[in-house]
C-alpha cells in the first residue's frame, strides 16, 4: 500500500503531537442499530482516535462474557453484515477522518463472500480489518485480497508470539499492530504493566508500525500505565459493559445508554491524554 490510509495518518498525527491513541471497541448494533449509530457518532468528540466496530458473531470464541453478551444483544436486535456496513457508511457521512476498523470472526465474512465483503467495506468507508481467526498461514484467503482493496489488515500479536513467529505475524500487517496483553479472552484480568512494557519493547524492536495494547484495560489510569512505551491502548469490554449496565430490564436502550459509553470514553481519554 503506497498511499497512507486514515489509520496511518491518524497514528502519525498523534505521534507528532506526542499523544497516545485511544482505540475504542463497540459491537455494531449493540443494543440496537440506532443507539449504536449514536454511540459511534459521539465517540470521536469523546476522545476516541480509532474506532473498532465489532461484527457480531454467534460464537465469539476469543471473547469473554461481556463481548459475547454484546454480540448476542446485537444479533437479537436484528444486526447483520449488511446493517454493519450501513452503520459505517452512515458514520462516514458526517466524519471523514476517524479511522474505522471492522473486527470479528471469519465466518460471517466468508458467508457474505470475501470479494463482495472487501468491495462493500471499502465503499462504506472502512479502513482496516481485524479478523481474529485468520492467522498469517492463511494470508492468501483474506489478508492479501484486503490489501489489494486498499484496506489495512491488522494482526494481533500475543505473549505466545515468540521471536521465531513474530516475523510471520508482522509480514503483511499494516496500519498498526494490536498487542494482546494477556493469554486469554477479552475482558479478563488486567495485565501487569511492566510485563506489557517489555513485550511491547520486544515487538517495537522488530517493526516501525504503531503498537496498540489491548485486553483487560478498564480505566484511564490503567490505560496510561499500559500505554507507556506503546502508541495506544484499546478499550472494549469496559465499554460494552457500560452499555449493558445502562439497559432496562428487557435489555433495551435507555436515555443513559449513549452517555454511559461516551462519558467513560471521555474519562479514559482525559487521563490518557494528560500523560
Amino acid at each position: 500500500m503506497t498511499t497512507p490510509t486514515r489509520i496511518d495518518r491518524r497514528f502519525a498525527a498523534l505521534k507528532a503531537a506526542g499523544k497516545k491513541a485511544l482505540v475504542c471497541f463497540v459491537t455494531a448494533g449493540d443494543p440496537d442499530f440506532e443507539t449504536s449509530a449514536n454511540i459511534l457518532a459521539g465517540l470521536p468528540k469523546s476522545g476516541a482516535d480509532v474506532i473498532e466496530v465489532g461484527m457480531p458473531f454467534s460464537d465469539p470464541m476469543a471473547d469473554g462474557p461481556a463481548i459475547q453478551a454484546s454480540s448476542l444483544r446485537a444479533l437479537k436486535s436484528g444486526q447483520n453484515m449488511i446493517k454493519t456496513l450501513k452503520l459505517v457508511a452512515d458514520f462516514r457521512k458526517t466524519d471523514p477522518d476517524t479511522p474505522i476498523v471492522l473486527m470479528g470472526y471469519y465466518n460471517p465474512i466468508y458467508v457474505y463472500g470475501n470479494e463482495r465483503f472487501l468491495t462493500d467495506a471499502k465503499a462504506a468507508g472502512v479502513d482496516g480489518l481485524i479478523v481474529v481467526d485468520v492467522p498469517p498461514e492463511a494470508d492468501d484467503e483474506l489478508c492479501l485480497p484486503a490489501i489489494r482493496h486498499g484496506l489495512n489488515f491488522i494482526r494481533l500479536a500475543t505473549p505466545t508470539t515468540d521471536a521465531a513467529r513474530l516475523p510471520a505475524v508482522l509480514a503483511n500487517t499494516s496500519g498498526f499492530l494490536y498487542y494482546v496483553s494477556i493469554t486469554g479472552i477479552t475482558g479478563s484480568a488486567a495485565p501487569v504493566a511492566t510485563d506489557v512494557h517489555s513485550q511491547v519493547a520486544r515487538i517495537k524492536a522488530s517493526t516501525k508500525l504503531p503498537v496498540a495494547v489491548g485486553f483487560g484495560v478498564r480505566t484511564g489510569e490503567q490505560a496510561r500505565a499500559i500505554a507507556e512505551g506503546a502508541d495506544g491502548v484499546v478499550v472494549g469490554s469496559a465499554l460494552v459493559t457500560a452499555i449493558q449496565q445502562s439497559l432496562d430490564k428487557e435489555a433495551h436502550a435507555t436515555v443513559k445508554t449513549v452517555p454511559a459509553v461516551l462519558d467513560l470514553v471521555s474519562s479514559i481519554a482525559g487521563v490518557l491524554k494528560s500523560a
Partner: peptide, 20 residues
Amino acid sequence: DRGFFGLYGGRFVAETLMPL
C-alpha cells in the same frame, strides 16, 4: 501440509493458539 482436505480443514484459530 497446511491441513486442508481440498477446500476444507485448515487452521483458523486466534494468534494465541497458533504456536500451540
